[in-house]
Design a binder for these strands. Structure first.
Lengths: 218, 218
DNA sequence: AAATAAAATTAGTCTTGCCTAATTTTATTT
DNA sequence: AAATAAAATTAGGCAAGACTAATTTTATTT
Protein backbone atom coordinates (compact mmCIF):
# COMPACT_ATOMS: atom_id res chain seq x y z
CA UNK A 1 0.00 0.00 0.00
CA UNK A 2 0.91 3.64 0.02
CA UNK A 3 2.67 5.80 2.55
CA UNK A 4 0.94 8.63 4.34
CA UNK A 5 2.69 11.11 2.12
CA UNK A 6 1.83 9.31 -1.08
CA UNK A 7 -1.80 9.23 -0.04
CA UNK A 8 -1.80 12.93 0.65
CA UNK A 9 -0.36 13.66 -2.77
CA UNK A 10 -2.90 11.39 -4.42
CA UNK A 11 -5.74 13.08 -2.62
CA UNK A 12 -4.38 16.49 -3.48
CA UNK A 13 -4.07 15.64 -7.17
CA UNK A 14 -7.55 14.18 -7.11
CA UNK A 15 -8.94 17.37 -5.60
CA UNK A 16 -7.17 19.62 -8.08
CA UNK A 17 -8.45 17.44 -10.86
CA UNK A 18 -12.03 17.69 -9.64
CA UNK A 19 -11.89 21.39 -8.84
CA UNK A 20 -10.99 22.60 -12.29
CA UNK A 21 -10.46 20.88 -15.55
CA UNK A 22 -7.15 22.68 -15.65
CA UNK A 23 -3.67 21.34 -16.09
CA UNK A 24 -2.19 20.13 -12.81
CA UNK A 25 1.32 21.46 -12.35
CA UNK A 26 3.97 20.75 -9.72
CA UNK A 27 3.60 24.33 -8.52
CA UNK A 28 -0.13 23.95 -8.03
CA UNK A 29 0.40 20.80 -6.00
CA UNK A 30 3.15 22.43 -3.98
CA UNK A 31 0.91 25.37 -3.12
CA UNK A 32 -1.99 23.16 -2.25
CA UNK A 33 0.07 21.02 0.12
CA UNK A 34 2.25 23.80 1.43
CA UNK A 35 5.32 22.00 0.19
CA UNK A 36 8.29 23.04 -1.86
CA UNK A 37 7.99 22.42 -5.63
CA UNK A 38 11.25 20.49 -5.51
CA UNK A 39 9.69 18.04 -3.07
CA UNK A 40 6.72 17.68 -5.37
CA UNK A 41 8.93 16.75 -8.28
CA UNK A 42 10.49 14.02 -6.15
CA UNK A 43 7.13 12.61 -5.23
CA UNK A 44 5.77 12.80 -8.77
CA UNK A 45 8.61 10.55 -9.80
CA UNK A 46 7.70 8.08 -7.10
CA UNK A 47 4.01 8.09 -7.94
CA UNK A 48 4.87 7.63 -11.59
CA UNK A 49 7.02 4.61 -10.73
CA UNK A 50 4.10 3.19 -8.78
CA UNK A 51 1.87 3.69 -11.84
CA UNK A 52 -0.49 5.96 -9.96
CA UNK A 53 0.00 9.03 -12.14
CA UNK A 54 1.22 10.08 -15.53
CA UNK A 55 3.19 13.24 -15.76
CA UNK A 56 3.70 14.97 -19.01
CA UNK A 57 5.04 18.47 -19.16
CA UNK A 58 2.46 19.42 -21.76
CA UNK A 59 -0.55 17.83 -20.13
CA UNK A 60 0.48 18.16 -16.51
CA UNK A 61 -0.25 15.49 -13.92
CA UNK A 62 -2.98 12.94 -14.51
CA UNK A 63 -4.14 10.08 -12.32
CA UNK A 64 -3.99 6.63 -13.88
CA UNK A 65 -6.99 4.35 -13.47
CA UNK A 66 -5.33 2.83 -10.41
CA UNK A 67 -4.46 6.27 -9.05
CA UNK A 68 -8.05 7.38 -9.43
CA UNK A 69 -9.28 4.30 -7.67
CA UNK A 70 -6.90 4.71 -4.77
CA UNK A 71 -7.61 8.42 -4.44
CA UNK A 72 -11.33 7.79 -4.49
CA UNK A 73 -11.01 5.32 -1.65
CA UNK A 74 -9.12 7.84 0.46
CA UNK A 75 -11.81 10.44 -0.19
CA UNK A 76 -14.48 7.85 0.61
CA UNK A 77 -12.86 7.11 3.95
CA UNK A 78 -12.43 10.79 4.74
CA UNK A 79 -16.03 11.64 4.10
CA UNK A 80 -17.41 8.63 5.93
CA UNK A 81 -15.35 9.44 9.00
CA UNK A 82 -16.64 13.00 8.86
CA UNK A 83 -20.20 11.72 9.02
CA UNK A 84 -19.26 9.48 11.92
CA UNK A 85 -17.57 12.24 13.88
CA UNK A 86 -20.47 14.61 13.44
CA UNK A 87 -23.40 12.28 13.79
CA UNK A 88 -22.14 9.72 16.24
CA UNK A 89 -19.59 11.54 18.32
CA UNK A 90 -21.27 14.92 18.29
CA UNK A 91 -18.42 17.00 16.96
CA UNK A 92 -19.11 20.38 15.44
CA UNK A 93 -19.02 21.10 11.76
CA UNK A 94 -15.73 22.90 11.93
CA UNK A 95 -13.90 20.26 13.94
CA UNK A 96 -14.34 17.15 11.86
CA UNK A 97 -12.19 17.83 8.83
CA UNK A 98 -8.86 17.77 10.61
CA UNK A 99 -9.59 14.59 12.51
CA UNK A 100 -10.81 12.90 9.35
CA UNK A 101 -7.52 13.88 7.73
CA UNK A 102 -5.88 11.37 10.04
CA UNK A 103 -8.61 8.74 10.10
CA UNK A 104 -8.72 8.53 6.31
CA UNK A 105 -5.31 6.85 6.33
CA UNK A 106 -6.38 3.87 8.42
CA UNK A 107 -6.02 0.96 6.09
CA UNK A 108 -8.18 -2.09 6.47
CA UNK A 109 -9.86 -3.89 3.62
CA UNK A 110 -13.38 -3.74 5.02
CA UNK A 111 -13.29 -0.72 7.31
CA UNK A 112 -14.81 1.78 4.89
CA UNK A 113 -17.57 -0.59 3.90
CA UNK A 114 -18.44 -1.46 7.48
CA UNK A 115 -18.44 2.18 8.47
CA UNK A 116 -20.59 3.00 5.47
CA UNK A 117 -23.12 0.39 6.51
CA UNK A 118 -23.01 1.48 10.15
CA UNK A 119 -23.77 5.04 9.09
CA UNK A 120 -26.63 3.97 6.84
CA UNK A 121 -24.90 4.51 3.50
CA UNK A 122 -24.89 8.32 3.55
CA UNK A 123 -24.74 10.01 0.15
CA UNK A 124 -23.17 13.26 1.27
CA UNK A 125 -20.78 14.23 4.02
CA UNK A 126 -21.50 17.08 6.44
CA UNK A 127 -19.94 19.60 4.07
CA UNK A 128 -22.18 18.51 1.24
CA UNK A 129 -19.53 16.57 -0.63
CA UNK A 130 -20.71 13.34 -2.19
CA UNK A 131 -19.30 10.18 -0.62
CA UNK A 132 -17.88 7.76 -3.18
CA UNK A 133 -19.63 4.39 -3.00
CA UNK A 134 -17.72 1.14 -2.63
CA UNK A 135 -17.81 0.80 -6.42
CA UNK A 136 -16.33 4.26 -6.89
CA UNK A 137 -19.55 5.88 -8.10
CA UNK A 138 -20.90 8.87 -6.28
CA UNK A 139 -23.85 11.21 -6.15
CA UNK A 140 -23.95 14.53 -7.92
CA UNK A 141 -21.30 17.04 -7.04
CA UNK A 142 -22.47 20.64 -7.01
CA UNK A 143 -20.33 23.11 -8.88
CA UNK A 144 -22.20 26.41 -9.05
CA UNK A 145 -21.23 28.85 -6.34
CA UNK A 146 -23.22 31.68 -4.87
CA UNK A 147 -20.75 34.03 -6.51
CA UNK A 148 -21.57 32.54 -9.91
CA UNK A 149 -25.14 33.80 -9.81
CA UNK A 150 -25.71 36.45 -12.44
CA UNK A 151 -29.14 37.60 -11.38
CA UNK A 152 -31.03 37.92 -8.15
CA UNK A 153 -33.07 34.93 -7.08
CA UNK A 154 -33.40 32.02 -4.72
CA UNK A 155 -31.11 29.07 -4.14
CA UNK A 156 -30.28 26.46 -1.55
CA UNK A 157 -26.89 25.80 0.01
CA UNK A 158 -25.81 22.40 -1.28
CA UNK A 159 -22.22 22.19 -0.09
CA UNK A 160 -19.19 24.21 1.00
CA UNK A 161 -15.90 24.39 -0.82
CA UNK A 162 -13.78 25.40 2.12
CA UNK A 163 -13.30 23.30 5.23
CA UNK A 164 -11.26 25.68 7.34
CA UNK A 165 -12.75 26.30 10.73
CA UNK A 166 -12.69 30.07 10.22
CA UNK A 167 -15.01 29.71 7.25
CA UNK A 168 -17.26 27.14 8.90
CA UNK A 169 -17.53 29.18 12.06
CA UNK A 170 -18.52 32.20 10.03
CA UNK A 171 -21.24 30.13 8.37
CA UNK A 172 -22.51 29.04 11.75
CA UNK A 173 -22.56 32.63 12.89
CA UNK A 174 -24.62 33.52 9.82
CA UNK A 175 -26.91 30.58 10.57
CA UNK A 176 -26.11 28.91 7.30
CA UNK A 177 -25.87 25.16 6.98
CA UNK A 178 -26.44 22.63 4.23
CA UNK A 179 -29.97 23.13 2.94
CA UNK A 180 -30.35 26.74 4.03
CA UNK A 181 -32.37 28.84 1.60
CA UNK A 182 -30.65 31.96 0.38
CA UNK A 183 -31.99 34.80 -1.68
CA UNK A 184 -29.50 36.79 -3.70
CA UNK A 185 -30.81 40.29 -3.65
CA UNK A 186 -28.06 42.24 -5.27
CA UNK A 187 -24.51 41.95 -6.48
CA UNK A 188 -22.39 45.04 -5.89
CA UNK A 189 -20.53 45.77 -9.14
CA UNK A 190 -17.61 47.47 -7.39
CA UNK A 191 -16.21 44.43 -5.58
CA UNK A 192 -18.74 41.71 -6.37
CA UNK A 193 -20.01 41.69 -2.79
CA UNK A 194 -23.31 39.92 -2.43
CA UNK A 195 -26.37 41.21 -0.67
CA UNK A 196 -28.32 38.20 0.45
CA UNK A 197 -31.18 37.19 2.67
CA UNK A 198 -30.68 34.04 4.70
CA UNK A 199 -33.80 32.00 5.30
CA UNK A 200 -35.95 35.01 4.59
CA UNK A 201 -34.35 37.16 7.27
CA UNK A 202 -33.04 40.69 6.93
CA UNK A 203 -30.38 41.32 4.35
CA UNK A 204 -26.68 40.78 4.96
CA UNK A 205 -23.71 41.51 2.78
CA UNK A 206 -21.03 38.92 2.18
CA UNK A 207 -17.82 39.08 0.20
CA UNK A 208 -17.12 37.60 -3.20
CA UNK A 209 -14.59 35.28 -1.56
CA UNK A 210 -17.33 34.04 0.71
CA UNK A 211 -19.70 33.51 -2.21
CA UNK A 212 -17.09 31.49 -4.04
CA UNK A 213 -16.94 29.01 -1.19
CA UNK A 214 -20.66 28.29 -1.07
CA UNK A 215 -21.94 25.72 -3.53
CA UNK A 216 -25.58 26.02 -4.41
CA UNK A 217 -28.47 24.16 -5.89
CA UNK A 218 -30.98 26.17 -7.85
CA UNK B 1 2.80 15.63 20.87
CA UNK B 2 4.63 12.43 20.15
CA UNK B 3 5.55 10.70 16.95
CA UNK B 4 4.10 7.36 15.98
CA UNK B 5 7.32 5.68 16.92
CA UNK B 6 7.58 7.36 20.28
CA UNK B 7 4.03 6.31 21.07
CA UNK B 8 4.77 2.71 20.18
CA UNK B 9 7.77 2.69 22.47
CA UNK B 10 5.78 4.24 25.28
CA UNK B 11 3.04 1.69 24.89
CA UNK B 12 5.56 -1.14 24.77
CA UNK B 13 7.29 0.04 27.94
CA UNK B 14 3.93 0.42 29.63
CA UNK B 15 2.99 -3.13 28.72
CA UNK B 16 6.28 -4.58 29.91
CA UNK B 17 5.88 -2.67 33.12
CA UNK B 18 2.38 -4.02 33.68
CA UNK B 19 3.21 -7.56 32.69
CA UNK B 20 5.92 -8.20 35.19
CA UNK B 21 7.43 -6.15 37.95
CA UNK B 22 10.75 -6.91 36.34
CA UNK B 23 13.47 -4.60 35.19
CA UNK B 24 12.82 -3.28 31.69
CA UNK B 25 15.92 -3.55 29.54
CA UNK B 26 16.67 -2.29 26.03
CA UNK B 27 16.84 -5.90 24.89
CA UNK B 28 13.38 -6.67 26.25
CA UNK B 29 11.97 -3.65 24.44
CA UNK B 30 13.79 -4.58 21.26
CA UNK B 31 12.36 -8.08 21.34
CA UNK B 32 8.89 -6.88 22.09
CA UNK B 33 8.89 -4.42 19.20
CA UNK B 34 10.89 -6.56 16.81
CA UNK B 35 13.51 -3.86 16.58
CA UNK B 36 17.26 -3.84 16.92
CA UNK B 37 18.60 -3.04 20.42
CA UNK B 38 20.70 -0.27 18.91
CA UNK B 39 17.55 1.46 17.69
CA UNK B 40 16.06 1.11 21.13
CA UNK B 41 19.01 2.84 22.73
CA UNK B 42 18.54 5.74 20.33
CA UNK B 43 14.91 6.06 21.22
CA UNK B 44 15.45 5.72 24.95
CA UNK B 45 17.67 8.77 24.70
CA UNK B 46 14.94 10.67 22.95
CA UNK B 47 12.25 9.65 25.40
CA UNK B 48 14.53 10.60 28.25
CA UNK B 49 15.06 14.04 26.73
CA UNK B 50 11.31 14.41 26.48
CA UNK B 51 11.02 13.51 30.17
CA UNK B 52 8.81 10.52 29.45
CA UNK B 53 11.11 7.90 30.92
CA UNK B 54 14.04 7.49 33.25
CA UNK B 55 16.70 5.08 32.28
CA UNK B 56 19.16 3.84 34.77
CA UNK B 57 21.35 0.89 34.01
CA UNK B 58 20.70 -0.58 37.42
CA UNK B 59 16.95 -0.06 37.54
CA UNK B 60 16.21 -0.35 33.85
CA UNK B 61 13.61 1.80 32.11
CA UNK B 62 10.85 3.47 34.10
CA UNK B 63 8.05 5.71 32.93
CA UNK B 64 7.90 9.16 34.47
CA UNK B 65 4.55 10.43 35.70
CA UNK B 66 4.07 12.12 32.32
CA UNK B 67 5.14 8.99 30.48
CA UNK B 68 2.63 6.93 32.39
CA UNK B 69 -0.08 9.39 31.66
CA UNK B 70 0.68 9.48 27.96
CA UNK B 71 0.99 5.70 27.72
CA UNK B 72 -2.29 5.22 29.56
CA UNK B 73 -4.05 7.48 27.10
CA UNK B 74 -2.74 5.46 24.17
CA UNK B 75 -3.94 2.26 25.80
CA UNK B 76 -7.28 3.89 26.51
CA UNK B 77 -7.68 4.84 22.90
CA UNK B 78 -6.65 1.39 21.71
CA UNK B 79 -9.13 -0.43 23.89
CA UNK B 80 -11.98 1.93 23.17
CA UNK B 81 -11.47 1.54 19.43
CA UNK B 82 -11.47 -2.23 19.89
CA UNK B 83 -14.87 -2.03 21.51
CA UNK B 84 -16.07 0.17 18.68
CA UNK B 85 -14.79 -2.13 15.97
CA UNK B 86 -16.35 -5.20 17.53
CA UNK B 87 -19.62 -3.83 18.77
CA UNK B 88 -20.44 -1.19 16.20
CA UNK B 89 -18.75 -2.36 13.05
CA UNK B 90 -19.19 -6.08 13.61
CA UNK B 91 -15.59 -7.15 13.29
CA UNK B 92 -14.51 -10.46 14.73
CA UNK B 93 -12.53 -10.87 17.87
CA UNK B 94 -9.34 -11.66 16.06
CA UNK B 95 -9.48 -8.74 13.61
CA UNK B 96 -9.77 -5.75 15.88
CA UNK B 97 -6.36 -5.58 17.50
CA UNK B 98 -4.42 -4.70 14.38
CA UNK B 99 -6.82 -2.00 13.27
CA UNK B 100 -6.85 -0.50 16.74
CA UNK B 101 -3.06 -0.38 16.56
CA UNK B 102 -3.49 2.32 13.95
CA UNK B 103 -6.53 4.04 15.37
CA UNK B 104 -4.93 4.50 18.77
CA UNK B 105 -2.57 7.08 17.29
CA UNK B 106 -5.28 9.46 16.16
CA UNK B 107 -4.74 12.54 18.23
CA UNK B 108 -7.58 14.79 19.15
CA UNK B 109 -8.18 16.24 22.57
CA UNK B 110 -11.72 14.99 22.96
CA UNK B 111 -11.86 11.95 20.70
CA UNK B 112 -11.28 9.29 23.36
CA UNK B 113 -13.80 10.84 25.70
CA UNK B 114 -16.44 11.16 23.02
CA UNK B 115 -15.88 7.62 21.86
CA UNK B 116 -16.03 6.43 25.47
CA UNK B 117 -19.39 8.13 25.91
CA UNK B 118 -20.70 6.86 22.59
CA UNK B 119 -19.81 3.32 23.61
CA UNK B 120 -21.47 3.69 27.00
CA UNK B 121 -18.29 3.89 29.09
CA UNK B 122 -17.23 0.27 28.77
CA UNK B 123 -15.04 -1.06 31.59
CA UNK B 124 -13.32 -3.80 29.62
CA UNK B 125 -12.31 -4.25 26.01
CA UNK B 126 -13.25 -7.35 24.00
CA UNK B 127 -10.11 -9.15 25.18
CA UNK B 128 -10.98 -8.54 28.80
CA UNK B 129 -8.44 -5.80 29.35
CA UNK B 130 -9.62 -2.93 31.52
CA UNK B 131 -10.07 0.38 29.72
CA UNK B 132 -8.38 3.30 31.47
CA UNK B 133 -10.88 5.99 32.37
CA UNK B 134 -10.40 9.63 31.39
CA UNK B 135 -8.80 10.19 34.79
CA UNK B 136 -6.34 7.35 34.28
CA UNK B 137 -8.01 4.95 36.72
CA UNK B 138 -9.14 1.58 35.52
CA UNK B 139 -10.99 -1.51 36.61
CA UNK B 140 -9.32 -4.60 37.98
CA UNK B 141 -6.81 -6.33 35.78
CA UNK B 142 -6.81 -10.09 36.04
CA UNK B 143 -3.45 -11.71 36.50
CA UNK B 144 -4.02 -15.38 37.28
CA UNK B 145 -3.79 -17.64 34.26
CA UNK B 146 -5.35 -21.00 33.72
CA UNK B 147 -1.86 -22.45 33.85
CA UNK B 148 -1.38 -21.02 37.33
CA UNK B 149 -4.09 -23.23 38.83
CA UNK B 150 -2.59 -25.72 41.20
CA UNK B 151 -5.63 -27.85 41.80
CA UNK B 152 -8.62 -28.94 39.80
CA UNK B 153 -11.66 -26.71 40.01
CA UNK B 154 -13.85 -24.17 38.30
CA UNK B 155 -13.02 -20.77 36.94
CA UNK B 156 -14.27 -18.22 34.46
CA UNK B 157 -12.35 -16.75 31.53
CA UNK B 158 -11.77 -13.10 32.42
CA UNK B 159 -9.37 -11.99 29.70
CA UNK B 160 -6.79 -13.14 27.20
CA UNK B 161 -3.12 -12.26 27.26
CA UNK B 162 -2.42 -12.84 23.60
CA UNK B 163 -4.05 -10.92 20.77
CA UNK B 164 -2.67 -12.79 17.79
CA UNK B 165 -5.33 -14.05 15.47
CA UNK B 166 -4.00 -17.61 15.61
CA UNK B 167 -4.66 -17.70 19.33
CA UNK B 168 -8.02 -15.97 19.13
CA UNK B 169 -9.17 -18.21 16.32
CA UNK B 170 -8.20 -21.26 18.35
CA UNK B 171 -10.29 -19.92 21.22
CA UNK B 172 -13.25 -19.47 18.93
CA UNK B 173 -12.81 -23.01 17.70
CA UNK B 174 -12.86 -24.23 21.30
CA UNK B 175 -15.93 -22.09 21.92
CA UNK B 176 -14.20 -20.04 24.53
CA UNK B 177 -14.90 -16.35 24.98
CA UNK B 178 -14.81 -13.88 27.85
CA UNK B 179 -17.04 -15.24 30.60
CA UNK B 180 -16.88 -18.90 29.55
CA UNK B 181 -16.85 -21.30 32.51
CA UNK B 182 -13.95 -23.73 32.53
CA UNK B 183 -13.33 -26.66 34.78
CA UNK B 184 -9.74 -27.76 35.25
CA UNK B 185 -9.87 -31.49 35.58
CA UNK B 186 -6.25 -32.45 35.57
CA UNK B 187 -2.81 -31.10 35.01
CA UNK B 188 -0.43 -33.51 33.29
CA UNK B 189 2.86 -33.45 35.22
CA UNK B 190 4.95 -34.38 32.20
CA UNK B 191 4.42 -31.20 30.17
CA UNK B 192 1.90 -29.24 32.24
CA UNK B 193 -0.82 -29.86 29.68
CA UNK B 194 -4.26 -29.10 31.02
CA UNK B 195 -7.28 -31.33 30.80
CA UNK B 196 -10.29 -29.07 30.95
CA UNK B 197 -14.02 -29.05 30.41
CA UNK B 198 -15.40 -26.03 28.59
CA UNK B 199 -18.86 -24.97 29.68
CA UNK B 200 -19.52 -28.44 31.09
CA UNK B 201 -18.82 -30.22 27.83
CA UNK B 202 -16.58 -33.21 27.28
CA UNK B 203 -12.97 -32.92 28.26
CA UNK B 204 -10.31 -31.39 26.03
CA UNK B 205 -6.59 -31.10 26.50
CA UNK B 206 -4.77 -27.85 25.95
CA UNK B 207 -1.10 -26.97 26.20
CA UNK B 208 0.64 -25.10 28.98
CA UNK B 209 1.35 -22.29 26.52
CA UNK B 210 -2.35 -22.02 25.88
CA UNK B 211 -3.12 -21.98 29.61
CA UNK B 212 -0.64 -19.18 30.16
CA UNK B 213 -2.53 -16.96 27.74
CA UNK B 214 -5.91 -17.32 29.42
CA UNK B 215 -6.55 -15.04 32.37
CA UNK B 216 -9.12 -16.28 34.81
CA UNK B 217 -11.37 -15.21 37.61
CA UNK B 218 -12.00 -17.71 40.37
C1' DA C 1 39.55 -14.25 39.70
C1' DA C 2 39.75 -15.25 34.96
C1' DA C 3 37.24 -16.62 31.01
C1' DT C 4 33.30 -16.42 28.51
C1' DA C 5 28.82 -14.99 27.24
C1' DA C 6 25.37 -11.62 26.98
C1' DA C 7 23.81 -7.00 26.93
C1' DA C 8 24.47 -2.22 25.96
C1' DT C 9 26.42 1.17 23.37
C1' DT C 10 28.80 3.68 19.67
C1' DA C 11 29.79 4.62 14.94
C1' DG C 12 28.45 4.76 10.61
C1' DT C 13 24.81 3.80 6.87
C1' DC C 14 20.28 3.75 4.57
C1' DT C 15 15.51 5.38 3.18
C1' DT C 16 11.76 8.62 3.32
C1' DG C 17 10.30 12.98 2.66
C1' DC C 18 11.25 17.19 3.20
C1' DC C 19 14.36 21.48 2.48
C1' DT C 20 17.47 25.41 0.01
C1' DA C 21 20.15 27.02 -3.67
C1' DA C 22 21.47 26.83 -8.29
C1' DT C 23 20.35 25.86 -12.90
C1' DT C 24 17.64 24.88 -16.84
C1' DT C 25 13.46 25.11 -19.26
C1' DT C 26 9.20 27.33 -20.56
C1' DA C 27 6.13 31.43 -20.86
C1' DT C 28 5.32 36.13 -21.14
C1' DT C 29 6.52 40.79 -22.19
C1' DT C 30 8.32 44.43 -24.49
C1' DA D 1 13.04 38.07 -31.46
C1' DA D 2 15.23 39.39 -27.27
C1' DA D 3 14.59 40.20 -22.52
C1' DT D 4 12.52 39.02 -18.49
C1' DA D 5 9.81 36.39 -15.40
C1' DA D 6 8.04 32.17 -13.85
C1' DA D 7 8.11 27.29 -13.46
C1' DA D 8 10.49 23.00 -13.31
C1' DT D 9 14.34 20.48 -12.27
C1' DT D 10 18.77 19.05 -10.37
C1' DA D 11 22.10 18.76 -6.73
C1' DG D 12 23.13 18.49 -2.23
C1' DG D 13 21.58 18.41 2.69
C1' DC D 14 18.95 17.38 6.90
C1' DA D 15 16.16 14.80 10.56
C1' DA D 16 13.75 10.67 11.93
C1' DG D 17 14.08 6.12 12.72
C1' DA D 18 15.50 2.14 11.40
C1' DC D 19 19.72 -0.95 10.31
C1' DT D 20 24.71 -3.57 10.70
C1' DA D 21 29.14 -4.07 12.59
C1' DA D 22 32.34 -3.12 16.04
C1' DT D 23 33.29 -2.12 20.71
C1' DT D 24 32.61 -1.66 25.54
C1' DT D 25 30.37 -2.87 29.66
C1' DT D 26 28.09 -6.08 32.67
C1' DA D 27 26.85 -10.80 34.08
C1' DT D 28 27.66 -15.51 34.40
C1' DT D 29 30.49 -19.54 34.48
C1' DT D 30 34.14 -22.24 35.49
Amino acid sequence: MHTLSEENYLKCIYRLWQDKGQKITPTAIAESLGNNPASVVDMLRKLTDKLLINYDKKKGVELTAQGQKDATLIVRRHRLWEVFLLEKLGYDWDEIHDIAEDLEHIKDASLADRLDKFLGFPEYDPHGDPIPKANGKMAKRYSTTLADLKTSGYCRVAAVKDTTSSFLQYLQKLNISIGTKIQLIEKIPFDSSLVISIDGNERTTVSQKFGESVLIDM
